[in-house]
Amino acid sequence: MTEFADRPHLVTLPSGPAHRDIAAALASLPRSFRPGAGEDAIVYVTGDDDWPASVEHALSVARRAIVVIQPGYAQPSTVLRLAERAATDSVPVMIDYAFASNPAVVLAAAAWSAAVEPTGILDVTSRHAGDGTGPMAVLLDQLAALHSLVGPVRTIRQLHIDGDAHSAVVAIPVGGGVITATLLGARTELGSRGSRVRWLGPTEALELEVPHAGTAGPGYSRHVTTEGEQLAPTIYENAHRATLARLSRHLEAGAGRCDDLTTLAGHLELVPREHPSRSASQRTSDQRAN
């Protein structure tokens, strides 16, 4: 049964490119949310370079919840500290990923977790708009999707980010072994944005395609065997709306703590220390500290 708030939660909309999409999602959840401001409002933070500072500021003024859209690189220790503070304050901080938050990922997670075995390979590709957060944010989104579908990523074994494209190879413990996932992403100015993940096993495969968060087009979740291919039901809901719906359930259940930031901190910790994106952010952070 769907639980609704006694009265809709106020939501302070973000600025920038996501404003329109979040506003549209809010409009479709009128019994749970409505735009507004105030101490009790849910605050949106865009995941640009300064997002941890923005979350920190929001924690000092917001008492209901915070949503971070597609966060880019940040110091893992900073993110962990934010997670601890949010837990202490009982303010859920939820992450709104373009890929990992798509309802098709959530719906497919149980089947994927049960099926994927170490033999074979995982293949992830994303084409993104590149506005705001860039390839590191897309990589973190891909890692979050793999976390939901397969399990916690253990290591990033290879990573290259070149302007607005990236490739990575990661290892994920599964079923008593370790499976490799290969990740690829590139910026596009075209409308064909979205992500795909495949598990290519020895006798079966799983495929999941999701469109960009700006559209509520359905994802496609398929199970391929020797007998044929089964398309699982998915829904016409984009990632922004699915995140809001998750937040609504979270709030109505009275749960304060949300693990999104802790999981993100774990992924940030995996980024190789020598990687330019990491050192650039470290320099930025150091400069801020000075």
Binding site: G201, T203, T225
Partner: peptide, 8 residues
């Protein structure tokens, strides 16, 4: 990426 497998 290349992979040969047992499904259809």
């Amino acid at each position: 990426l290349g992979n040969m497998h047992g499904y259809w």
